[in-house]
Every structure is written in structure tokens, then in C-alpha cells.
């Protein structure tokens, strides 16, 4: 009698165990989420036209013109602060000067102020913003200033490509 009761109890427990194991099924999947090194920079504004058409009598330096319609945006996640450099695809002729100034957001780097890039090529790009920490900065103003000397003469419309590079 005791054996029979034990057997019945054992079978009942087994039945409960089986019922439980089938009533709550589970599956697993491994998901690897990796965040790699990211450096992105973009500019808005397209073609910028700078035309000098005024001067002051007696001054060789003609009245400069500026444009502040374009912007830059950056995103990076590097542990080391980065910088932005600027350069032209070809140098300007003597007597003409192109300057650039970038205005970063608060705590998003230090501006080098107005920088002459007239002779800055890829190999000699100049820093315009330094010490940019990881994060993002959007829609920051780029200001171009074009200077010319009267002694340099007339400059027919000349296109130059300005390259901004986010680098370490």
C-alpha cells in the first residue's frame, strides 16, 4: 500500500514536471551591438560667390567682402579630441586672399579665428577648429572673407574648392 502510494505520487510529480516544461518554452539569440569609430563632417551652402567691387581712394587694399551663409556639422566618437582643417584645391594668385572662420558650439572645440587659406593645400591644410570632444555639433557658421589688392588687378571669376577635414 505504501509502495503504491509512493508510485502514484512519483508519477503525479513527473506529470507535473512534464506539463511545466512544455508550458513555457524559450529560445535564445545572441545580439552583438558594436559601435565603431565614427567621424563625420558635412557642410551646407553649396556655391559661395564673393565679388569685390569697391575700394577706398588711396588704399591699395580693396574693400573686402564676406559671406556667412554656409554652415558645418560634425559627429565623432573618438576618445581623443579631433580638429578641423581647411585647404584649397589650388593656391590663389599673389595679391588675393581667402580667409575662413568657423564658429563651433559651446564646449565643442576652439576656433582658430579668421585663418588665411590662400596657400593652404591638402599637404599644408591649416587648423580652423581644435580640441573637438566626442559628440555632435550642428549648423555652425562658416564665414568666408575675400581680400584683394588693387595692384593685383582684375580677377576673372575663379572657382576654388575649399575642403574641411575632421582629423586627429
Amino acid at each position: 500500500m505504501k509502495k503504491s502510494l509512493s508510485l502514484i505520487l512519483g508519477l503525479s510529480l513527473c506529470a507535473l514536471c512534464v506539463g511545466t516544461s512544455f508550458s513555457q518554452a524559450a529560445a535564445t539569440q545572441t545580439v552583438n551591438l558594436a559601435v565603431n569609430s565614427v567621424q563625420k563632417i558635412a557642410i551646407t551652402g553649396g556655391v559661395i560667390t564673393l565679388t569685390i567691387s569697391n575700394g577706398t581712394a588711396g588704399n591699395n587694399t580693396l574693400t573686402p567682402v564676406s559671406d556667412a551663409t554656409s554652415t558645418y556639422s560634425i559627429t565623432h566618437n573618438s576618445a581623443t579630441p579631433l580638429r578641423i582643417t581647411a585647404n584649397l584645391d589650388a593656391a590663389l594668385a599673389a595679391g588675393y586672399q581667402l580667409q575662413i572662420a568657423l564658429a563651433p558650439g559651446a564646449l565643442m572645440g576652439t576656433s582658430a579665428g579668421t585663418v588665411d587659406i590662400s596657400n593652404a593645400l591638402a599637404a599644408s591644410a591649416v587648423a580652423v577648429v581644435t580640441g573637438i570632444p566626442k559628440g555632435a555639433d550642428a549648423g555652425r557658421t562658416i564665414t568666408y572673407t575675400f581680400n584683394a589688392n588693387a595692384s593685383a588687378g582684375i580677377l576673372t571669376s575663379t572657382a576654388k574648392t575649399v575642403t574641411l577635414t575632421l582629423t586627429n
Binding site: N32, A34, V38, K40, A42, G139
Partner: peptide, 28 residues
């Protein structure tokens, strides 16, 4: 009581790189 569940592939890789990022946005 019969219940089964499974996934078609046991592993998924998600990689965030420059290709997934818009300049100026902190969120990637």
C-alpha cells in the same frame, strides 16, 4: 500542453559606423 519557440538564426550583428551617421547628430 505543447509550446515551442525558436529563432531562425542564432546570432545577429549590429554595427554602427560612419555609414549610419548623419553629421551633426549625436544619436547614431
Amino acid at each position: 500542453v505543447i509550446t515551442s519557440v525558436r529563432v531562425t538564426v542564432g546570432s545577429v550583428n549590429l554595427n554602427i559606423s560612419s555609414a549610419n551617421v548623419v553629421a551633426g547628430q549625436n544619436q547614431m
